[in-house]
């Protein structure tokens, strides 16, 4: 059997497990409720703006957003592109990027540690290469997270369309694009979560360690920002949202390559360590 088939079987089972477990269902429901609530809140703010600032035309808002985005991403083309994006979707995108690590840590902390705690993992290591098992676990987690965020995004698109925040075509095309941009970033987070989960045999310890690692990465990012040390900011996966949303293809490619590289590094490291360890 090829390693790809092994990975597929492990990932399929992981997906089934995630959406059947109480934890997976609760997180899906919370994500949907949270996403909807945030969307409604943003829509209400939009409405308030329109009411309080009746003299401000959509063109003026678009122009202001273009300036802001150009400044934020350091690229006029990106600023122009994002000025056309439905505001609610853009805001939800950044919130999703911000909250994805939390979702991943809650979904993934017992991804491997749960199987190691009661030695359930032994049924798999007899039948799959250990590296395939780890890649399958990562893929299963990433697919689960992607499916949850897609569902959440889809609900938001519908709310946007129904409330008239954006035309249907614009909401869906921008919505899909923004969701796709979250995928490489969540892949890296899933890689980190899988690595941490594979180190600890006790899920609660793995959960705390995952929180700690994510927090440390964020602190490192803040230090990098504060002291203008770019190298430090690059260890934080969310840094690459600016690359992946960029209109310049070279920036986009850089962001994608960085995410793929970091994912490969974390999943590779967890596979290597898992292969070497006693179970």
């Amino acid at each position: 059997m090829s390693p790809f088939s092994e990975v597929r079987f492990v990932a399929q089972r992981e997906l089934r497990k995630s959406f059947r477990s109480a934890k997976g269902i609760v997180l899906l429901v919370l994500s949907l409720l949270g996403g909807t609530a945030v969307t409604l809140l943003l829509a209400w703010v939009q409405q308030l703006k329109r009411e309080k600032l009746p003299n401000v035309t959509p063109e003026m808002i678009e122009s202001a957003r273009e300036d802001a985005m150009t400044q934020a991403f350091g690229d006029p083309a990106t600023g122009k592109m994002l000025s056309h994006t439905p505001e609610v979707l853009l805001a939800v995108f950044f919130i999703t990027i911000w909250l994805t690590p939390l979702l991943i840590s809650l979904l993934g902390f017992d991804n491997v540690s749960g199987d190691m705690q009661h030695k359930t993992v032994r049924y798999w290591t007899l039948r799959t290469r250990r590296a395939s098992y780890m890649v399958g676990k990562w893929l299963g987690l990433w697919t689960t997270v992607s499916a949850i965020t897609l569902t959440m995004h889809a609900v938001i698109w519908v709310v946007c369309i129904v409330r008239g925040e954006a035309p249907a075509a614009s909401a869906i095309s921008w919505g899909v694009r923004l969701w796709i941009i979250t995928l490489p970033i969540s892949a890296v987070w899933c890689g980190i979560s899988t690595l941490v989960s594979s180190i600890f045999k006790t899920p609660i310890v793995a959960l705390l360690a995952t929180f700690a690692v994510f927090f440390v990465l964020w602190v490192v990012f803040l230090i990098g920002l504060r002291f203008n040390v770019n190298a430090l900011t690059y260890v934080y996966p969310n840094t690459y949202d600016g690359f992946l949303i960029n209109a310049r293809i070279d920036r986009w490619m850089t962001g994608l390559a960085a995410c793929v590289g970091m994912t490969a590094l974390y999943v590779g490291a967890s596979s290597y360590m898992f292969t070497k360890r006693d179970l």
């Binding site: 199987d115 009661h118 030695k119 359930t120 007899l126 250990r130």
Partner: peptide, 26 residues
């Protein structure tokens, strides 16, 4: 060497719990 031994070896581990969320058949 899992690939060489796959399906040629079966093991009943003493204290490995079955995966609780799975049904026996699946």
């Amino acid at each position: 060497q899992v690939d060489e031994l796959r399906s040629r070896i079966g093991v009943l581990p003493q204290d490995a719990l079955l995966p609780g969320t799975d049904k026996v058949g699946e």
